[in-house]
Amino acid sequence: KMTIRVKGKELARRIAKEMKDRNLKVEIHEHGDEVILEIE
């Protein structure tokens, strides 16, 4: 399990899509400006 902190929703969406393309499970937690992606 891996956690990534990202500034900006646009970048977070791009990373999430990339991870889904690799068949990984992604959970997205938004905290205002910061987005936390949990990847399994």
Rank of each mutant, 00 (worst) to 15 (best):
K1Y: 08
K1E: 05
M2N: 10
T3N: 08
T3I: 15
T3W: 06
I4N: 02
I4V: 09
I4H: 02
I4Y: 01
R5E: 07
R5N: 09
R5M: 11
R5P: 06
V6D: 02
V6R: 00
V6W: 00
V6A: 03
V6I: 11
K7L: 11
K7W: 05
G8I: 08
G8M: 05
G8L: 11
G8F: 06
G8Q: 05
K9C: 15
K9N: 08
K9L: 15
E10K: 07
E10R: 08
E10P: 01
E10A: 08
E10L: 05
L11T: 10
L11M: 08
L11K: 09
L11R: 09
L11Y: 03
A12Y: 00
A12C: 03
R13F: 07
R13K: 13
R14Y: 04
R14S: 09
R14F: 04
R14M: 12
R14P: 03
I15R: 00
I15W: 00
I15A: 00
A16S: 04
A16C: 12
A16R: 02
A16Q: 04
A16F: 04
A16K: 02
A16T: 05
K17N: 09
K17E: 12
E18M: 10
E18D: 08
E18V: 12
M19T: 02
K20M: 14
K20W: 08
K20I: 13
K20A: 12
D21V: 04
D21F: 02
D21Y: 02
R22M: 10
R22H: 09
R22Q: 09
N23W: 06
N23Y: 07
N23M: 07
N23F: 09
N23H: 10
L24E: 02
L24I: 12
L24P: 00
K25M: 09
K25L: 10
K25A: 08
V26L: 04
V26I: 06
V26Q: 01
V26C: 03
V26N: 01
E27G: 06
E27T: 15
E27W: 09
E27F: 11
E27Q: 12
I28H: 02
I28M: 12
H29M: 11
H29Q: 08
H29A: 05
H29S: 10
H29G: 03
E30P: 04
E30V: 13
E30T: 10
E30D: 10
E30W: 14
H31G: 07
H31V: 14
H31T: 11
H31A: 12
H31R: 13
H31S: 12
G32C: 13
G32Q: 07
G32Y: 05
G32M: 06
G32R: 06
D33T: 07
D33S: 07
E34R: 07
E34I: 15
E34L: 13
E34D: 10
E34Y: 15
V35N: 02
V35Q: 05
V35M: 11
I36L: 06
I36C: 13
I36P: 01
I36R: 04
I36K: 03
L37M: 05
L37P: 00
L37K: 01
L37Y: 02
L37Q: 01
L37E: 00
L37W: 01
L37A: 01
E38N: 07
E38F: 13
E38M: 13
E38S: 10
I39F: 07
I39L: 04
I39V: 10
E40A: 11
E40V: 12
